[in-house]
Structures are given as structure tokens and as C-alpha cells.
Amino acid sequence: MSNKKFNILKFIANYLIILISIFALITIIFAGLLEFINRSVLSGKDLLIFFIVSAVASILFSIVFKLNNISIVLQAIIIYFLLSLIVVLVGYYVLYIYDIGHNYKLFISTIIFIIVGLVFLILFLIIKLRKVNKSLNENLKNFKERDH
């Protein structure tokens, strides 16, 4: 198989993985949210809109994953922010569950959940990254000691 063909197949496989992940994630989130506010289950039309939104979001996510000059923490924050934005926008414009004028509680609680999640995500990434970097630098130090 030629290198170009392999790269195209790899790109398609990565894109499909991202697409399926986003679609599954927003479906689970909205199924949970609708259950929480005692509204009817998701319709076929809703799922179709989710799929289209996921397909567009996957392109954005693929671009963010390809960015080389930003830190892994910033990359994760951008992905998280985009995903949160999708949830809020789809909830507002497609499912009409965020009626800020009459029922602001759900909207406020969603925003609080998003912020708490973001704080946990940043803390988790910083701790994990520090651990990995520490181990890598210890191995580097050991290598230099072994080599001299």
C-alpha cells in the first residue's frame, strides 16, 4: 500500500473514531438531560441533527488535534470548550431545553457542571503531565549516568 493511500486511510479512520465518540457522547448527555427534566426521549430527527453536528464538530476536533504548537492542557481545554458549546447550542436551538427566561435553573446548573468539569480536567491533566515528565526526566538522568 502506498504511503499516500495509507495516510488517507489513517485520516479517515481517525475522523470516524472522533465522529462516533462525539455522537455517542452528545447522545448520552442529552438522553440524561431529557430524562432529568422528564421530557420525551430523543426522536429520529434529533439523532440525525446530532449526527450532522458531530460530523461538523469532528472536522474542528481533527484540526485541534493536529495543532502542534500548543500544550496538551490547552488542547484538552479547547476540546472541552467546543464540546460544552455544542451541548449548550444544541440544547438551546434543537431540543429547546434551555429556556433562560422561564426555566433558568437547568441552564445555570449546566454551566456550573461545565465549569466544575473544566477545573477537574485541568487539575487531572496537570498532575498527569507532571508525573509523566518527571519519570521521563529521571530516565534521561539515569541514561546520562549510565553512559558516563
Partner: peptide, 16 residues
């Protein structure tokens, strides 16, 4: 040359 590296840190997409 690994002996000329001062420190390493992980980056996105598995790069260092």
C-alpha cells in the same frame, strides 16, 4: 545526542 539534552517534556499527539 541524548547526552546533550537538558530536559524533556511531553507534548500533544505523543510528541516530546
Amino acid at each position: 545526542n541524548i547526552n546533550k539534552i537538558e530536559k524533556v517534556s511531553t507534548l500533544v499527539n505523543g510528541r516530546i
